[in-house]
Design a protein around this nucleic acid. Structure first.
Lengths: 194, 194, 194, 194
DNA sequence: CATGAATGAGAGTTCATTCAT
DNA sequence: GATGAATGAACTCTCATTCAT
């Protein structure tokens, strides 16, 4: 595949991403993507066989870009709790978004593809890596007496499950910003922070 | 609508329930249900206009039957922790099921209908009522010195969000029974129980 | 058929009449009539096989009731021109109505049934009888020097065709009250009246 | 849309035209046209959304082709009355046709679409332009002492309404060639011609 | 007579997918 | 590589009509 092809493929994936954000995964048809990309029907088939394949690429792109959620823009002097608060703030924003987000599409996609090998399951990879980072933060926090905790990994995982619970609740039953705050505060209190 | 009609409607809902368990919500067509029920195309439309309407009835049925999750078969001498353990056991079973469950269908349904009035949102209703029961259990547990907790409601809600997180994770990234146990244990430890 | 049956049949025809006025002929289904009459599906079939049969009855009713258009409420001292003016006024009203009228339905019906025996063609019967009356009026008018005309029958028929032309134009291209007046005046002028 | 598409679209319109001539407007389904054109179900939808759209195109075609009704094949030395007679002859043919004509379909179409903007109402456009031409012919006829008339426009319009009346009568109550002749003669007599 | 549940034919419409150009 | 016309399968939905009760 030539350079031009790679560019085009990337263009398709990026455009499709927007479509998935708008409509979720299942509702999106090849036609939707063809139209969004303003390419020919046959043209799309040169690059992708179906929407699953396209969405997989979207996810790959996503994970490349979001790997650095934690590392970006962090003040040199920030404490562990500072960083945790920052992370929570990001998560809150993500939880409350209903439209400009891939959340639903991702869930829908994995409903159909839950048996993908773990290495291809971006959701799992992100979950696990987030757990690791939180674990590390807690460790640092404990060392610096900011945080009280005697099971770093367990706590980190618990936090992530709460966040997952908040996310899915937001998408299905709706949730208010206050309710999110309340849950995040509960976690922080459990850590002896804030 | 006569008695016979009511029976038939119930039959359709129950049959459709199985279809939804197998295929989720979005993938199910009126035709699927027609075939599962072995009735005529037009016949189904006498009772329901679309799959959403049918699924709503399925949910109604569901919530009627599961309202008593907590109350059933509870030993007279059971302690609060006993009951909590029982509840967790039920939840674990529910979390780990992938096929014989409406979980996915429900999520998919509410992805599309998240703005239903709260009274029609079974998910929300069940969540809230579960929170209340857990809260009560904690209260009793604290009174009997089985449990340590200083924020009954917050803790109850936190527990439910973890369970939600586990549920959605199970459906999307997969989860092992051990992993579920680990999370439930973490919660119990936090309550000073077990 | 008992008295009760006759009453019911009449009820159906009268109710269906309203439906036809609203929707024309072709668009109307047996279901529409069942619903308008608030009777059972099977019940309607006891009396009529299809919408054509019902519409035929509507037409029969119609022709019974409208036979006396000319004879009703005519002042003893009215001149031929007076009566003609009255008739034109009625026709104008009929022409300009778009909704509360069977006009369209009748046209649609005869598009499909133009080969009905003349005795069953209400449209033709009404046309012919109107021609006769106009002819008579002209004759009287001429005798009384109100009207100038040397071909009573031809003129009467010509007038009726103009009215038909106005009626169908009103239903298809639309027509203003002024335009109708203009045409009616043109006719009167041709008769040397007004 | 390429040249080939334009050809195909034209082919569809022309084929559909025949279908409309046979069945009128309302009875025609997309399926009828698909079958008449011997194309695929989906294929038709590439070009048209529904039968109304197709019929509109048929009408457009029609009006392009019939604009020149008056101008064609007219002898250099023809008098106004000659041309009028020719026109009447054409009209008579049109009036008497029951099958090979769009008349019914057009009426049915405008029953449903009477509120189209005047510019899209072919019926109205043709009526108005015919009135203008007749008016002109009368004027010329009067100048050449062939015709007697003191209200050119009024008479032209009156003639057209009679023709409309004859046309709709032919479609609904049926009409004999003689009856048409009789009406046309009546008009000519009124013009002092023949 | 009357009911209304049930059937199944048939119309509309949308898309994934192919293929000649 | 790219296009976009074409196909046909699959779904949705509506009614005329029948028939057991």
């Amino acid at each position: 595949m030539g350079e031009k092809s790679i560019q085009k493929k990337k263009y398709i994936v990026e455009t499709a991403r927007k479509v998935f954000m708008e409509k979720g995964f299942k509702k999106v048809t090849m036609k939707d993507i063809v139209e969004a990309c303003d390419i020919s029907r046959g043209g799309l088939y040169l690059y992708f066989e179906n929407t699953s394949q396209i969405f997989s690429e979207v996810l790959k792109l996503e994970s490349e870009e979001t790997d650095d959620v934690f590392s970006k823009n962090i003040d040199e002097n920030a404490t562990a709790v500072d960083i945790l608060l920052l992370f929570f703030k990001e998560q809150k924003k993500e939880i409350l978004k209903r439209k400009d987000t891939l959340t639903q599409a991702i869930y829908e996609f994995y409903f159909e593809n839950y048996n993908l090998p773990k290495k291809d399951n971006v959701l799992k990879k992100q979950f696990d890596s987030a757990v690791k980072v939180i674990e590390k933060l807690i460790e640092i926090g404990v060392e610096n007496d900011e945080i009280v905790c005697d099971d770093y990994e367990g706590t980190a995982r618990n936090i992530m499950y709460v966040l997952e619970g908040l996310k899915i609740s937001a998408q299905t039953t709706g949730i208010t910003p206050d309710a999110v705050d309340r849950e995040l505060l509960y976690i922080l209190k459990g850590l002896g922070a804030e």
